[in-house]
């Protein structure tokens, strides 16, 4: 079993949802970012999404755009991001780690090289925003052949006709983007999320994680009652934005992560 399968199976037995956290690699700098990454599991993150910085994050809102700018200004690149994963894996063999970003840096790195290095570094899955199933051959197929999960985004615009196409070839979990919009934007109504989860369950047995616009422990708890995973990104990254120094950034992210984890854990008690 893959780390993602194992983790979601364990949590199902514990009858609780996963807290899935997103931070951008290299934000606000390599060392602080690595400290955040290493601290997240202890602060209650069950699955980690690590953003690969890109100059043109077209599907991201202001918070993650700024995170990309900070990381790139601190000279983060894909090589260093893979190095961060290697360093993380020295102490942590169980927390699933998913790389998330846009295709161009991977394309430039070379797809075969990237897959080989990601596998060796201990990457469990990939989320590539601008690779819909129409482009499976570009990365999804070879990644899965190498044993790396390819996690799909499904959205409010993905209708029943299209859903099988999107889910076919998905593995690890399904990421439901609960609002049509950029990351960090307003959140969906509970009714919408309930209906969306029910619809997805008709089409897939994969765990379903919900993201976009989830900012507080209370909100996380609400979603955790409905779904298998709760994704939080922009709210964590805002902690870095408002920190005065690297130490405050690390502490801010991990503190909020602990609170969110408590919210998720309390949800079904």
């Amino acid at each position: 079993m893959s780390r993602l399968q194992t983790r979601f199976a364990e949590l199902k037995q514990q009858n609780r949802a996963a807290l899935v956290t997103f931070v951008t690699a290299g934000d606000p700098g390599y060392d602080a970012s690595l400290a955040i990454l290493k601290g997240l599991p202890k602060a209650g993150a069950d699955v980690i999404e690590l953003g690969m910085p890109f100059t043109d994050p077209m599907a991201d809102g202001p918070a993650i755009q700024l995170a990309n700018i900070r990381a790139l200004a601190a000279k983060q690149d894909l090589r260093k991001t893979l190095q961060m994963v290697r360093e993380f894996r020295k102490d942590d063999q169980s927390t699933p780690l998913v790389l998330m970003g846009y295709f161009n840096p991977i394309h430039k790195f070379g797809v075969d090289n990237f897959i080989a290095e990601a596998k060796e570094a201990g990457v469990d899955g990939l989320i590539v925003v601008d690779l819909p199933p129409e482009h499976n051959v570009d990365l999804c197929d070879p990644a899965q052949a190498a044993g790396i999960d390819f996690i799909r985004l499904t959205t409010p615009t993905t209708d029943d006709k299209r859903l099988p196409k999107v889910l076919n070839g998905s593995s690890g979990f399904v990421y439901y983007v609960s609002v049509a919009g950029v990351t960090g934007a307003g959140s969906a109504t509970l009714e919408h999320v309930e209906a969306a989860v029910a619809r997805l369950r008709r089409h897939t047995d994969l765990p379903i994680s919900i993201g976009f616009g989830i900012r507080t422990p209370e909100h996380a708890a609400t979603i955790a009652r409905l779904a298998d995973g709760v994704v939080v990104g922009s709210a964590l990254i805002d902690q870095i934005e408002k920190a005065d120094n690297s130490e405050d950034a690390v502490n801010g992210v991990l503190q909020l992560c602990s609170e969110l984890a408590e919210g998720v854990r309390s949800a079904r008690r």
């Binding site: 819909p132 299209r162 999107v166 983007v177 919009g181």
Partner: peptide, 9 residues
């Protein structure tokens, strides 16, 4: 067609 899933439909 390298765009986010929201835009594909």
């Amino acid at each position: 067609q390298y765009v986010a899933e929201t835009l594909m439909p």
